[in-house]
Design a protein around this nucleic acid. Structure first.
Lengths: 117, 117
DNA sequence: TTAAGGTCTGACAGCGCTGTCAGAGTCAAG
DNA sequence: CTTGACTCTGACAGCGCTGTCAGACCTTAA
């Protein structure tokens, strides 16, 4: 299928699909005239990438265990690398959360200082 | 005082002090030769900007109520605009926190799917 | 006087996407 | 064949800082 269709099926913009490719996440065939030609199963791949991205992962990070994500199975192949990365990522999210909590603290203390009314 | 000294006193890099100025947060005098000449009280101003920045505020946001921050008082002048902005900012931090919680959720569910061992 | 160290301006780079635009070729339906 | 919709590549822009480098001037102490 061509890029426009993949875009409609996944909800990921054409621009971003090309970007995924630039980052090494997708490697579609090409027609004689140079059009990208995606295999139907890439729909699943893209949806997984999308989901992981929604989890705060950067594309290079996702690329690290792309082989797991490209699996045919219903979910993911059990993949040590993926497990490790997921844990690191969760840790990262937790750190960001802590920092936000600190930010909130700073701001509320200011609010208190000048009177909360 | 010159920019280097202000930098040492506040812990804010020379680069960033110049950036503050570019964003309209500081307006130091100039010596005949063009050197920035800061008033001693600007140390306090810079420290407040720094603190608000640590709270996640962007410089343009801080600029909005700079008059409150530049006050001579020990803390801030009671300033309606500041109060409003602080509340918005806190709301913003809360939204970011919620999003991070969702991210975490996505990641942990993946971890569960492939087995947590 | 000289040399070191501070300062000046301006600009490039990077982070991680994401939209958009330009100029050109391709494909399909009428 | 023509037209509109789609695709291609490449590049510019923006978010909000932050470091760094270049080329040139200033200041201060030896």
């Amino acid at each position: 299928m061509k890029i426009g269709e993949l875009s409609k099926r996944t909800g990921v913009s054409v621009r971003m699909l090309r970007y995924y490719e630039a980052e090494g996440l997708l490697k579609p065939e090409r027609t004689e005239s140079g059009y990208r030609d995606y295999d139907l199963k890439e729909v699943r791949t893209v949806e997984r990438i999308k989901l992981l991205g929604a989890g705060g992962m950067t594309l290079p990070t996702i690329l690290q265990f792309l082989s797991c994500v490209r699996g045919e199975g219903p979910i993911f192949e059990p993949c040590d690398e993926l497990r490790v990365t997921l844990r690191q990522q969760i840790r990262l999210v937790e750190e960001k959360t802590e920092k936000l909590a600190q930010n909130r603290q700073v701001l509320t203390s200011f609010l208190t200082e000048i009177g909360e009314n």
